[in-house]
Amino acid sequence: MKKKTTLLFSLSLGLSLLYLGGCNPEEKTKVALVPEDETIAVVNNQKIPLSKFQARYQTFLKKYGSLSPQGEDNRQTIKAIVINQLITEELMTQEANRKGLQISKEELETTTEEALTPYPEANFDQQLAANNLTKKEWKERMHFLLLQKRLIEQEVLNRIPITKREINAYFKAHKKELGHGKAVRVRNLTLASKSDADALLNLLERGADMKDLVRRHSISPDRVNEGDLGFVEKGEMPPEIEAAIFTLSSSNLYSPVVHSQDGFHIFQWLRTRAQSRLAAEDAKDEIKTALVTERQAETYERWLNRLKENATIQIDEKMLKTEEGF
């Protein structure tokens, strides 16, 4: 299914910018040899240990090495990407501290619990091992991502100016696109085999409770929401699933069993929402969000470049060039 598997921890801007921003190997960084053997870089007197670079470099190679061309030039490019990621993260941590931003223990615990919910313990441990992470390191990573998200919201997104004239111009240009198309809210029950799905569909048609069956039998991550996928519009699901969903109504509560790459699905109709178009005043928030989204990458880059220009950054280039990981 393309959409609405439970999104455990949505940091779309933060995650995408972290790995795309500041990773240009040609970037002009203040370079000097760092005299300490086990330090590969220093950012405003804060050391980045060689061991941290090694771990990130190995993870990068493990995940993306097979997709990258082989050769010395490519290895040096990857190293430049990795060291720039680490420098960017250190700059962000320092800036968040300078601004007094904090993540409470309760917020971190809630986020990590939500992230772990769909994963059986053994599967999650395998994921950590594949990324060269311990649970402690993973939790520290989650803390950084939360802090990074808060910093970017405060220092980048909330500072993008949007004028009333721009909102009005956007409304005139996109009037037909604003609002919602016809949508159906559904609950999803996913089984591993067709025979299981057929058996449970039979129970549903005899009056069984869909939420109870989802909790006890569904193999989909959305079981944490009792299978509720929210409103689904056309074009958001594979054709075979969309066809089943859009035949549902108050007089046709359950779909036939539908097969997808994720398993065998039964969908329950919950509600149909009619197509609607927004008036200019009602569309204001949606338009502002769209305009901010259009400008966020460029604004982020300018902000990050300012951080780098005002920082003292040293890289042990000799160590970086010869280091091969561990």
Rank of each mutant, 00 (worst) to 15 (best):
A274T: 08
L86C: 00
E36S: 07
L116A: 10
T112I: 15
R215C: 03
E137K: 04
E137F: 04
T322S: 10
Y57V: 06
L200K: 02
E90Y: 04
I315T: 05
L201T: 03
R216I: 07
T59N: 09
Q154H: 04
D212A: 11
H259G: 00
A283N: 04
E155A: 09
E205T: 06
V82W: 08
S66Y: 11
H265P: 00
L147F: 12
R185M: 07
L253S: 01
I266S: 05
D209Q: 10
E323L: 10
E137S: 04
L50C: 03
T111W: 04
A55L: 12
S255D: 04
A197E: 02
T5A: 07
I287W: 06
I241S: 12
N24L: 08
K308W: 11
L145P: 00
L191A: 04
I81D: 03
L204K: 03
I81R: 02
L248T: 08
R98N: 15
N131V: 08
N123M: 06
Q127Y: 14
P69H: 07
N131R: 09
R295C: 01
K172P: 00
A115Y: 14
H180F: 05
C23G: 08
L151Y: 13
E140C: 00
P120H: 14
K30P: 00
N97M: 12
E286H: 06
I245V: 15
E205G: 01
V156D: 02
L270S: 03
Q314V: 06
Q127V: 14
L133Q: 09
R165M: 06
L213T: 05
K52W: 12
F171T: 02
P239F: 13
E242S: 06
N123L: 10
L145D: 11
R277T: 13
K211E: 14
M92E: 14
N158I: 02
I313Y: 08
N45S: 12
H259A: 15
R295E: 12
G179P: 01
E309W: 14
